[in-house]
Write a protein that binds this DNA or RNA. Structure first.
Lengths: 141, 141
DNA sequence: GGTGGCGTTGACGCCGAGGTGAAGGTCTAG
DNA sequence: CTAGACCTTCACCTCGGCGTCAACGCCACC
């Protein structure tokens, strides 16, 4: 299998495959013409990389999984090093969710406050029809 | 006030200030010697930028707030454009939290499954002491 | 008048995961 | 024989928000 076919079957691009190779993640044998030659095992490794990438793992974080597969294990996450990456990623995801949630609440609070301030100003502009409020309304200008 | 003092008072760097100016976000007047000259209003603008940056807003997203302040409004979020940015950011944050939470659950599930598979293999390796289990244990190899 | 500490512009570096394009080699079908 | 579909390497571009020089100007103090 050549690079174009592998890329298509894994739903990625030839450029990505060459990049993975440059990172030492997915080395390729070469045919007599210099073309890269891949087999079904390479497809499995590549699919493992893609799944983790879709999860947001960095390329380096997929390395233990790839090496685990290459060592002959049935799954990329059969090795302790892969489990450690899972655990680290879980902690990282939890931290990110916590941080983003906190920011979300602060932004929401800012929005509520800013809208209240806007409405208060609008009320002051429209209020002066009322005889009692007029005096105070003018004073706040 | 010169650039170094402003940077220090806002807890940032001179490099950041020159960058903001290059983006047209925080233009500076110049003294006779070519030095940038800032006043207290600039400090307010800068603080607004910093707060939003700490929230994870992109520089471009802080622009409406800065222009709002420069237009003389009491707060950076007194203008409709700023409120729109708040709302867009809230939606963005919600989407990110949702996506990350989903990924978190998938990774957690993968971890649980991988640990179970590992434990199952370990059990097979240690089990054969039991007479009844030995026959089955050997077969699974 | 020299030294140190500010300021100035400009240009390149960084991070990750490739995209894009040039210039060329190879293979295959018509 | 030639078109075009594939492959090769090399090298620069992208995005955001600056960091880090380099080489120079300006100003105060001793």
């Amino acid at each position: 299998m050549r690079i174009g076919e592998l890329a298509e079957r894994a739903g990625t691009t030839t450029r990505a495959l060459r990049y993975y190779e440059s990172r030492g993640l997915l080395p390729a044998r070469r045919g007599g013409n210099g073309y890269r030659a891949y087999d079904e095992d390479d497809l499995r490794l590549l699919r493992q990389i893609r799944v983790l990438q879709d999860f947001g793992f960095e390329l380096e974080e997929t390395r233990p999984f790839v090496e685990c597969l290459r060592a002959g294990h049935p799954a990329g996450d059969s090795c302790p090093a892969s489990l450690e990456v899972y655990r680290a990623k879980l902690a990282e995801l939890d931290a990110m969710v916590a941080r983003l949630s906190e920011v979300r609440e602060q932004v929401a609070a800012q929005l509520v406050q800013a809208e209240a301030a806007r409405d208060a100003l609008a009320a002051v502009d429209e209020e002066p029809r009322c005889e009692l409020a007029r005096g105070q309304g003018e004073e706040t200008r």
